[in-house]
Simulated assay, not measured.
Amino acid sequence: MTIALPMPELRMIPIDRIEVLNPRERNQKKFDAIVDNIGNIGLKKPVTVTPRPGNDGAERYMLVCGEGRLKALLRLGESRIPALVVNVSDEDAFVMGLAENIARRRHQPLELLRGISLLREKGYGAKEIGLKTNLHEAYVRQILELTDKGEERLLVAVERGKLPISIALLIMSAGDDDKALQLAVQEAYESGELRGHQLMYAKRLAERRQFLGRSINKTTTRKKVDVTSSSLVRAYKREVERQRLMIRRSSVVQQRLLFVLGALGKMYADENFLNILRLERLDSLPKYLGERILRSGGSL
């Protein structure tokens, strides 16, 4: 379904004649900044409305886009607002407003996710949603898959760029099985999809999801956990295994570093090699590494 828009008309409209059908909650600090900005430099972009007949015979308007701008001018004591007037149906007005909110550069993560879900409820497929919101069709399908499973924690992590969506789907497929979750994260690490801080973030996220639930609703209560001798033993074994794995990895890294250090020592003992490095101005080394090479017989 596509929306063929007529040419909009710019008008100055009484604010009290505009109706907001789907008001959104706003971060008060950010909204205050918007109000200050508009108060200092004025409104840079008009709101968008569509006309509707009023009960009193006078024309009223339904807000399509620009709730924040509308409320900012209202707080500033303005009674009229510049608006682009378009003649569209209720359905098209809803989709236009939703698509603009999703396409905004600084949208809230859950706002994007709920917007995609609402568009699907309106009968739009993944391809159409992608076209309207400038998102890839495959990405929309994956988002909807996570949404259907109620995976809010994973969805927000994906939208904030903290976690690749492929890893979120992998964690989702593991369910609540602790061993399967650990295996999923480990496989992602070994495949190269997770590295460094992303790996640690994925582990913490998987643990929070398992312990606090999939939703990030602030009213979510912690799951009651019965502490028994067997659960303590399992927790102890998991921690011991984690420590063993860390020791094995550090041992491998140490062996590789010693190999590199030995190789550097032999190369720096070769005067011809040193001359080449000096010509290319590549003969400087960190102080600690240089001292280790000197002790192993090399020269600088």
Rank of each mutant, 00 (worst) to 15 (best):
T2P: 09
R104A: 13
Y139V: 06
K162F: 10
V253Q: 06
L84G: 05
S79V: 07
G123H: 08
L232A: 06
E25H: 06
K132I: 11
R256K: 13
K224N: 13
L264A: 14
L170K: 14
L155D: 00
L232S: 03
G298P: 04
Q142C: 09
N55I: 02
N87F: 02
N101E: 12
R249N: 05
A103E: 02
N22S: 04
E151T: 05
T147R: 07
D177W: 05
R60V: 12
E187N: 12
Q254E: 15
V253G: 02
P46N: 05
R256W: 10
T228Q: 02
L84W: 10
N87T: 13
L205H: 07
D32F: 10
V185E: 01
S89D: 02
V158E: 01
E187A: 07
Q108M: 09
E151Y: 10
E25D: 13
E111V: 10
S299E: 13
K203H: 10
S191Y: 08
I34C: 05
S117V: 09
Y189W: 12
K122S: 11
R292I: 15
S229Q: 08
K44F: 02
A72D: 09
L294R: 14
L279M: 11
L110D: 10
R153T: 00
N87Q: 13
V225N: 11
R208E: 06
G115L: 00
E78Y: 09
L112M: 14
I38Q: 15
E151H: 04
I276V: 11
G265A: 14
I167H: 00
L144Q: 14
R256G: 10
Q254P: 00
V233Q: 04
L183G: 05
V95H: 03
R204S: 06
Y61V: 07
S191M: 07
L300T: 12
K179D: 03
A188P: 07
D270R: 15
A184C: 14
Y201K: 07
L294C: 02
